[in-house]
Design a protein around this nucleic acid. Structure first.
Length: 864
DNA sequence: ACCTATCTGATGGCTG
DNA sequence: CAGCCATCAGAT
């Protein structure tokens, strides 16, 4: 039994040989407890020979050895010894002491903090949170500033309620005064446990530490705070929640806040911080105000999204201290499962070291199924059923866990007491409950209880919100299990288990499809856990779902030897209309969602009345409907370019216009889309275009120096991707270019190979407009229109022309052939498309100008 | 350092 | 040089 500990700890870290645990007393003072840090590894008792046991006991590196049930626990003096016996002195397997002695260690990578929290059952406190932003001397390039070479000009701390807690402003440009404001900052941080900043790990956190050292400010051990970088947490949690690509285009705080809460930074030139400070008076005040506004945006963003609160909830469930790392799925799954292992008196594998070579050798396992969409044009009345928590329910039903695997026959009868995954043919004992199923069960039970609890509370109250966050936290957790089991980096990695989970899902979907088809329905699409079905009435489909749950799955699982069944499919929604562009890419609008449809009336709050589709009656106006009224809700958009952050804004805008015409105005006449296309095409070719409309944005997925141009056949260097080339230009200018940095650029000229690109900041109003239309703006919309209005056999030629969406694509004039004796550039220099300021001039400039044109208007500095 | 499936765009090589 | 294919990277 874990020892009961009433203390809630706010933080813990290793200090020399000690583990320091921080907590607050009743009056809020922070206190510390020290105990010996535990660096232990576990071995199976049966594996430990008498000689190995003697070695442990006699070793001066070992603090103690104890036998605990089937396990031997060895506590090491320091982590170096623990890893040395595992990996050998140079990480060389041949030299591994454990290997030579036939030993496999368990949990030999668990930190003292993790072990303490898992073993003692100690609670993790909700951290007292404060938000931080700093401004530094802009004359120092960000890369150098991050290394602590720029003076801190001001800082601001704001609490969860957007109140300024404290501010600091430099008065004189010297170390003594900077020391003053930094010491004031550390003092102001003292009442708090967690410091949140946007890109804090990349800038603010290292800067305040480095500067404190440089100017010899006195400050407390920084390990005493939880340093939380909001950016990666937001980026991950928002990836699924984002409405449009706008929200993904940039992770700059200003852009994120503009798109998420409609509020941005103050209008202030951040590249002039020093000038603003040096001018003093009003100007300096504006700098300070700008910094304060930036800081206030952080709690506003958290209030809007609740992301940090969900993370707090997850941390409390998983016994993690809420720093940036706590938001990694491997971390929180580890935290939760280690607690379970302690309760069961068992141990997990030591996390494997996975080299680059291992990664290359890693073979993927079979995942989910996605079928080819069997629809064309605007499809009406498509019903969707999906499995509720498909993977968790499979884990539970088959009791799938690394330690419940059993040898069973591949074919024929399954061994007694076991079940067998239908595709991989991996066997699992039906009892006792595996650790993975137990984790999943507990989390699902908890989640259900919080959902129920939340429903019983008054919406909008803080208790209601907290219950919602806990429920969301459990959802995040339970959904990450499958991924963690499938990850070779995790201690729970088990390819057989992971593949049994995914392929059993495929098997369930196929079974469902076959039965639906047998009943005369048409399954038009599947993705992982969902089936899109047409040619069926609402009632019949509901009956099919009911029958599947009552008969189909229980029988199917019994045949696999399962003794429990958690599989459940639900009738989620009906599309009034649906256009599928390809796998994972479609747009539709609901006739009803979970049996609720929008009425034509407005209720007291100005929202559509709700029709109970089973009774076909509106609860607001009481009207009885024979058929459902036209849909009023937002179209559901999946996978289309509108949702993508790397697609240029005009392209998203045009696609959304077409989506709205299709889905909101219910337009089914191809001719009505023509003016929309032509208007945007004219704009792209002729109007003045803002950089926000035409820039492309892509992230660097690895450090810049790891990008190597691919060698061409003749051995020369190939061309790197556009965003990589631009990143190099920006880096040369002193900008901070790190992994995950989004690079914004535009295409200067695509008529040459490789195409000429330049940083978005160099934009002076001109770009390759033909390329813009032909490659970036029109194709996403063309694909959508071609899907909605495909040519159909038997149509008149007029109808076929109306559905020829290719006719709007080509806009670039053909290149005249270079004649003998005429320089190539001159041959291409003839003015084309007058009035549109097309790319022709740009193309020439890239090959040496023949014209006397201002350089900035033609080829931006740094074009590559 | 959570999985796989899938689509798209840039690029280079080849072919007619 | 357009059209096709393979490959890679990025995004969902």
């Amino acid at each position: 039994m874990p020892e009961l500990n009433p203390i809630k700890f706010v933080n813990g870290f290793v200090d020399g040989a000690d583990l320091v645990l921080l907590y607050r007393n009743a009056s809020g003072e922070m206190l510390a407890r020290r105990r010996k840090a535990e660096w232990s590894s576990f071995y199976r008792r049966a594996d430990v020979t008498a000689e190995a046991m003697r070695s442990f006991r006699n070793s001066s590196f070992v603090l103690g050895v104890s036998e605990e049930g089937e396990w031997v626990r060895v506590r090491w003096q320091a982590p170096e010894w623990r890893s040395a016996v595992r990996e050998g002195k140079r990480g060389d397997e041949e030299e591994s002491w454990e290997r030579r002695n036939g030993l496999t260690s368990f949990e030999a990578d668990v930190t003292p903090e993790q072990r303490f929290l898992a073993v003692t059952g100690a609670q993790v406190a909700k951290p007292r949170r404060v938000f931080l932003d700093i401004e530094t001397d802009c004359r120092v390039q960000p890369v150098a500033a991050r290394q602590g070479k720029a003076r801190v000009l001001c800082w601001c701390l704001v609490d969860d309620d957007e109140r300024i807690v404290a501010q600091g402003v430099l008065e004189r440009e010297d170390d003594v005064d900077e020391r003053r404001i930094l010491e004031a900052l550390w003092a102001a941080l003292d009442p708090y446990d967690q410091v949140v900043a946007w890109f804090g790990d990349g800038f603010d956190f290292p800067v305040i530490r480095q500067r404190s050292v440089t100017v010899e400010a006195r400050y407390k051990d920084p390990r005493r705070w939880l340093w939380m970088d909001f950016l990666p947490v937001y980026a991950r949690m928002n990836a699924n929640a984002a409405e449009s690509g706008d929200e993904k285009e940039s992770m700059k705080l200003n852009d994120v806040c503009m798109s998420r809460i409609g509020i941005g930074k103050h209008d202030f030139d951040a590249s002039k911080t020093y000038e603003a400070w040096a001018a003093g008076g009003e100007s300096r005040a504006r700098l300070v105000e700008y910094c304060a506004q930036d800081t206030k945006l952080l709690p506003m963003l958290n209030k809007k999204t609740g992301f940090l609160d969900v993370n707090d909830a997850v941390c409390s469930l998983c016994k993690l201290f809420a720093d940036t790392r706590s938001a990694d799925p491997t971390q929180f799954v580890d935290g939760f499962l280690l607690q379970l292992a302690v309760e069961r008196g068992t141990h997990f594998a030591t996390r494997a070291r996975y080299s680059k070579e291992d990664q290359e050798r890693h073979e993927k396992f079979q995942g989910a199924v996605v079928t080819e969409p069997k629809v064309s044009g605007i499809e009406k009345h498509v019903h969707v059923a999906d499995f509720s928590g498909m993977y968790p329910s499979i884990i539970q039903s088959f009791n799938m866990s690394p330690e419940t695997k059993r040898p069973v026959n591949i074919n024929g009868p399954i061994a007694d007491g076991c079940c067998r995954a239908p595709v991989t043919r991996v066997g699992f004992a039906n009892s006792p409950e595996g650790i993975l199923p137990e984790a999943v069960r507990r989390m699902r039970e908890k989640r259900a209880s919080y959902q129920k609890h939340q429903a019983s509370l008054v919406a909008g109250t803080s208790e209601w919100a907290e219950a919602g966050r806990l429920s969301a936290g459990y959802k995040v957790l339970v959904n990450s299990f499958y991924g963690v089991v499938g990850s070779p980096f995790s201690r729970y990695f088990d390819r057989q288990v992971a593949e049994s989970i995914s392929t059993t899902g495929v098997w369930l979907i196929h079974k469902t499809d076959a039965e639906a088809e047998r009943r005369g329905m048409n399954v038009v699409y599947n993705d992982t856990d969902s089936a899109f079905v047409k040619n069926v009435s609402r009632q019949d489909f509901a009956e099919f779902v009911r029958w599947s749950n009552a008969e189909l799955y229980p029988a199917a699982l019994r045949e696999c030897g399962c003794t429990s069944n958690f599989i459940e499919i639900a009738y989620e929604k009906e599309f009034e209309r649906l256009v599928m562009v390809s796998k994972k890419r479609y747009v539709g609008t609901f006739a009803h969602y979970k049996w609720v449809a929008a009425c034509a009336c407005d209720d007291a709050k100005g929202r559509p009345g709700k029709i109970d589709v089973r009774r076909m009656t509106c609860d607001a106006c009481g009207r009885q409907w024979d058929d459902l009224p036209p849909p009023r809700g937002k179209p559901e958009i999946r996978g289309l370019e509108y949702k993508r952050g790397d697609i240029i804004r005009i392209a998203r805008g045009l696609q959304l216009e077409v989506i709205d015409l299709l889905m909101r105005e219910l337009c089914e006449d191809p001719a009505r889309f023509v003016p929309v296309i032509e208007r945007v095409r004219k704009r792209v070719l002729e109007d003045s275009l803002a950089i926000e409309d035409i820039r492309k944005s892509a992230a660097l997925r690895k450090p810049l120096h790891e990008y190597k141009p691919k060698a061409k056949a003749d051995g020369s260097e190939g061309t790197e991707q556009a965003h990589v080339r631009v990143a190099r230009v920006l880096k040369a200018r002193g900008e901070q270019i790190l992994v995950d940095t989004k690079i914004a650029y535009f295409v200067v000229d695509a008529s040459v190979s490789p195409m000429v690109v330049a940083p978005a900041s160099d934009y002076a109003g001109e770009c390759d407009r033909y390329y813009l239309w032909e490659d970036l703006v029109y194709p996403p919309t063309q694909r959508l229109l071609a899907a909605a209005f495909p040519p159909v056999k038997g149509m008149t030629s007029g109808e076929l022309v109306a559905r020829d969406w290719d006719r709007f694509l080509r806009v670039r004039p053909k290149k005249p052939r270079a004649r003998k004796g005429v320089p190539e550039a001159l041959a291409r220099a003839q003015p084309r498309n007058p009035g549109s300021a097309g790319p022709s001039r740009l193309a020439n400039e890239a090959h040496g100008s023949l014209f006397d044109l201002p350089v900035m208007a033609v080829r931006p500095q740094g074009a590559v």
